[in-house]
């Protein structure tokens, strides 16, 4: 079946309203929308191949999210007046957050974040310059075996010192000179000491038995 094409092509040319170009980076005060600008500087030891992708800008904990360009600069668009905490989120490096305040006239003020003394103002330059403070230390270090650690371990000292005493003291006893010295010292001590009550009583009741025991003890020591 044949049909007539009744498609109508209308050729009209209309030059409609011409809007002025909206250049975005300049602040559009009329709508009350502002931009927050800044630049992130990577740490010296940072892996420079992926840091731009891994780093994000969070404003007020993710209410606005910004991304950084190759050179580390960032812009957060369409922010109304108010107070914002700008954080740099990177999985490996820590950055200090900064509070940016935009007043109704479009004036910017950037200051350090202080949650405790909220009225304290320590101003920082705007546009923001964010530098990595430290690398996050997520992991615990495995202890490495070191001789000094081992020797100064209180357990080891506790074990070694008595051992030394046991081993060395008898050796010292064998030396005749030191024996003399020791005797002298003990004599001196006896001379200076006042007779003790208990000793007096024991000597009174048991007579010479005590001295005998002393001799015996010495004999045992000698055998060792």
């Amino acid at each position: 079946m044949l049909r007539f094409e009744h498609s109508i092509a209308i050729f009209v040319c209309i030059i409609a309203n011409v809007f002025c170009a909206l250049n975005s980076v300049e602040e559009d005060v009329g709508t009350g929308k502002y931009v927050i600008e800044g630049r992130v500087f990577p740490a010296d030891d940072q892996d420079l191949s992926t840091w731009q992708v891994d780093t994000r800008i969070h404003v007020n904990g993710g209410e606005y999210i910004g991304f950084i360009k190759d050179d580390g600069s960032f812009t957060i668009y369409n922010v109304p007046t108010g107070s914002y905490v700008v954080e740099i989120v990177n999985p490996d490096y820590m950055y200090e957050p900064i509070r940016v305040e935009i007043n109704s006239k479009g004036k910017y003020r950037a200051r350090k974040v202080n949650y405790i003394q909220t009225s304290q103002v320590i101003q920082v330059p705007y546009p923001l310059r964010m530098k990595a403070i430290t690398k996050f230390r997520y992991f615990q270090m495995r202890e490495q075996w070191r001789l000094t650690d081992f020797l100064f371990n209180p357990m080891v000292i506790m074990m070694v010192l008595p051992l030394l005493l046991i081993m060395i003291l008898p050796k010292m006893m064998n030396d005749p000179e030191t024996k003399e010295d020791l005797k002298q010292i003990s004599n001196m001590a006896k001379m200076s000491e006042l007779p003790e009550m208990s000793e007096m009583f024991t000597s009174l009741f048991s007579g010479g038995a005590a001295t005998k025991a002393n001799v015996k003890a010495k004999q045992i020591k000698k055998r060792q």
Binding site: S24, K33, T50, Q52, I68, K69, D70, Y77
Partner: peptide, 27 residues
């Protein structure tokens, strides 16, 4: 992205790094 104002962004497809970014408000 967004809904008036819109954000137009260009990304490097290899690395994912942001290349350009501009905001657009439709009247």
């Amino acid at each position: 992205t967004g809904s008036n104002p819109y954000l137009v962004r260009g990304w490097d497809s290899n690395t994912g790094v942001l290349i350009w970014e501009w905001s657009l408000t439709v009247q």
